[in-house]
């Protein structure tokens, strides 16, 4: 099982590495969306500092969602997914490998880029640290929930918009506590509670999402 996981992980990472453009595009999208907000609301530092957690988190949500289309669709088109379903290894493990590689390619770059963008919004150093930790805990949840949405809409017409409709409402708790943790640092109340809850969401999503995703894939490939 570990070998199957490693195999999927290596394969997906290699494919992503060969087509670096996709990864870079999602990251550039994140940077552009975040940079548009000061242009829209004005460059006042105090206002930007208040908005920063929400803006960064919403942009991360959207960037993560955009990359969901690549999660299963290429494998569905070239028939790899069908072979995965037929393989002797449990589908849940293969799904988990794909989700991990999706997070490494879409979530982790956001985590690494976020402090730089936080500086644009004049966030203090301790808030930047919490922002990174919250994204580190939160973006895997986004990948896990998103994988269920991507599997449900696999091969459906208009799936790009549809996946947003399905997945974004489910992202609400992660957004609240992710952005809330950074806001809590600014308010001086400490971010532990928010981060613990984000960790709880991650634990719950790790347990439930791969199974739901595997079930959805079986339904889609029936």
């Amino acid at each position: 099982m570990i070998r199957a996981l490693g195999w999927v992980l290596r394969r997906d990472l290699l494919l992503a590495f060969r087509r670096r453009g996709d990864v870079v595009n999602a990251l550039v999208f994140f940077v552009i969306v975040v940079s548009l907000f000061p242009l829209g609301v004005g460059p006042e530092a105090s206002q930007l500092r208040n908005m920063a957690p929400g803006v960064l988190w919403v942009a991360a949500l959207l960037a993560c969602m955009l990359s969901l289309a690549r999660l299963f669709a290429p494998d569905h088109q070239d028939g790899t997914l069908e072979q995965m379903l037929l393989a002797g290894e449990p589908l849940v493990v293969l799904v988990a490998g794909k989700v991990i590689s999706h997070w490494l390619m879409s979530g982790l770059p956001l985590v690494l880029m976020a402090p730089l963008l936080g500086l644009q919004f004049d966030l203090p150093a301790d808030a930047l640290g919490v922002l990174c930790v919250s994204l580190l805990l939160g973006t895997p949840v986004l990948s896990l929930i998103g994988a269920v949405g991507a599997a449900l809409t696999l091969g459906v017409r208009g799936s790009g918009v549809l996946v947003a409709l399905l997945v974004l409402p489910l992202y609400v708790p992660v957004l609240i506590f992710g952005a809330g943790s950074v806001g809590a640092v600014a308010a001086g109340t400490g971010a532990e509670a928010h981060l613990l809850l984000l960790g709880g969401f991650l634990a719950l999503a790790v347990v439930l999402a791969p199974w739901a995703c595997a079930a959805a894939l079986r339904i889609a490939m029936e």
């Binding site: 449900l152 809409t153 459906v156 017409r157 208009g158 799936s159 549809l162 409709l165 399905l166 409402p169």
Partner: peptide, 10 residues
């Protein structure tokens, strides 16, 4: 709305 949209799209 998501539930209805998903069912309508398939």
């Amino acid at each position: 709305i998501g539930f209805m949209a998903l069912q309508a799209a398939i």
